[in-house]
Design a protein around this nucleic acid. Structure first.
Lengths: 359, 359
DNA sequence: ATGAAAGCGCTAACAT
DNA sequence: ATGTTAGCGCTTTCAT
């Protein structure tokens, strides 16, 4: 008992100096006058324990607020009901997690994991270390699998992780030679919906705000070009601005267009954030939305519904996204095939472009 | 070796059927021709290993992408560098995590934890189970401490957790007889700032949108009343609407005022979300902001800067909030005293109430 | 129905 | 400088 007590007295690190020693199974066993094996069985509802014994143990544990140490249990069981969720950030631009779409995705994934009884380990990671560090939570055994929100131009490195059999699902665009399981929405279709709508509104000079070096905006741009082509409108490169997904993006894009001196009567922005900040900037330049410039956003984040003017946008099913990501990952972890999922996109017509001029 | 292999072959639960067996220290030791103790020392930069040996081991581990199993390490070290972050939800109202302020707080805490080298275990919890379940991640040994965003009217239960020595820091209002460590901002001061500003704009019929049954709005209301009193303006209960922090809150508050038939020339809303949705609704009722009704929000979430009209609001230092919460919690875990922290609030004057009528 | 004992992957005395 | 060994808190054979 001597060494035992000494070990228990040793308190350390990011540990437990404040709280007194955590209760453990041996304590419950001693107090209940049984072995730890019986306590374990009782707590895990094994049919091998006498009902009376089980009742006594459960009561004791509850009154003492004892819970099984999950770390030890996981170690013994070689299981892990925690999922790592990664939202990378671009070192060059901003460190703060403020993008409403990403935040909404985070909420959606959190809700889906909660529903499935999984915990969520949330990490941020600089994009330039994605390849080397994305798998760390898995390699260290902290999580059973990883959900990565966004590809961040690291397609190749993600493929390497998949080749290493890291259980991982990525939110992003479907790409050729994609080894990792990818869940995303129909970007080409979304781009077409937005552009077709603007054309139907009589717009012909439609600016495109979005970084076409990234897979998702690139596919939306393809949809945009396809819609223009269908109506015999030439694609004008001067109408495309490679805006990053940042609050400053919309303003900068409008300034860029101003500097180019190119005329335009509509904007298709690759996120609602870009659309909103662009509208704010257009207004500052004295251009009315939608009268002078019609604007269509992308995502349909909640704020779009009460922005002024209410935002016409391409809806990504954010709620369904979380469920789909989680479902695919759990399948992967289970050793089942997890094919790519493409969720539908849908045009939501509001005042910033379209009939509903009410707001 | 026989049993060993059998054990290794056993694959289970939310486990690892897909991936092949995870590498472990014993593998590295065997391949490097040393004992696991030496590998452990090398990987932990102990000065007790020969430089050459260490180099060989590190290289081997890196090339094999081996990382120490944190669960096992934690078990052995009785430490835990994971912090639980809880954002509760109200069962009656909404399940989805979409509140931009909460999301921003989450981002802020995540960034602060990352900076301190801690991982974040994120959970949602229904408010009606806060008392019983908030400590679960700690009781199960998953986390070394807990950050709870919001008090959610569970002051008493939170005190019980604190009495149980659960290392926990709560974002919220400072209350009398507060046993738990509380980090919040100056709500009374914030309420005064907002109201004083509206009075200075010549407004006299200032509506207050916020649920004064909750601690933070209650304190802001006290500031509001104090400012009115200082200017000899009577507090009119008909001007107060108990709006919940929901996207529907602003609209409902405006409808309520409409139904009451009470006249008002200003609104002080307890969150930017309420302010924005109220403005949207005022506009739908044909009332101009700020000409007919001046509106001041609360929080200064990022969107406030490009909302139309740009929102005058009481800034809560969201970035500092995350750092303060984390700092206090780490102190608590370290056994050091963690006194309550009250962060300053500050008025940000923009177009929705104030001089800057530009936007 | 219960207990003894081994072992999950790791670290730290204690040896050498 | 390195190996041996015990043990972190738990589950699960295998005995009884």
């Amino acid at each position: 008992m001597g060494t035992d007590d000494m070990a228990k007295a040793r308190q350390d690190g990011a540990g437990s100096e404040a709280a007194r020693r955590r209760l453990q199974m041996a304590d419950i066993a001693r107090l209940a006058g049984v072995s730890t094996a019986t306590v374990s069985r009782a707590l895990n509802n094994s049919p091998l324990v006498n009902a009376e014994t089980r009742g006594r143990i459960l009561e004791l544990a509850a009154s003492l607020k004892y819970s099984i140490n999950i770390g030890a249990q996981n170690l013994r069981l070689k299981q892990n009901r925690t999922i790592g969720v990664l939202i990378p950030y671009d070192r060059k631009t901003h460190l703060r997690l403020t993008d409403p779409f990403l935040l909404a995705m985070l909420g959606s994934v959190a809700d889906a994991l909660t529903e499935q009884g999984f915990d969520m380990l949330f990490s941020r990671l600089p994009t330039d270390r994605l390849g080397e560090a994305a798998a760390t939570p898995f390699d260290t055994g902290r999580v059973g699998g990883i959900i990565l929100v966004g590809q961040w131009g690291r397609h190749h490195e993600l493929n390497e992780l998949a080749a290493r059999k890291v259980p991982m699902v990525v939110w992003g665009a479907h790409l050729p030679q994609q080894l990792y399981c990818c869940v995303g929405s129909d970007n080409v279709g979304g781009g077409m919906l937005a552009t077709e709508h603007l054309i139907a509104q009589g717009r012909r000079r439609i600016a495109f705000f979005g970084d076409i070096d990234l897979p998702e905006p690139a596919q939306r741009y393809r949809g945009y070009c396809a819609a223009l082509a269908r109506h015999g409108i030439a694609v004008d490169p001067a109408l495309q601005v490679s805006s990053p997904f940042l609050p400053s993006g919309g303003r900068e894009a409008v300034e860029t267009m101003q500097a180019r001196g190119v005329d335009y009567d509509a904007v298709f922005a690759c996120s609602d954030l870009l659309a909103m900040t662009a509208i704010d900037s257009l207004r500052a330049h004295g251009r009315r939305v939608p009268e002078d410039v019609a604007v269509v956003g992308y995502d349909d984040i909640e704020q779009s519904a009460y922005f002024h003017p209410r935002l016409t946008t391409v809806r990504q099913p954010i709620g369904a996204a979380g469920s789909a990501l989680v479902a695919s990952l759990l399948a992967l972890i289970d050793g089942k095939p997890a094919p790519a999922v493409e969720l539908p996109t849908e045009l939501v017509v509001r005042a910033s472009a379209g009939e509903a001029q009410g707001s």
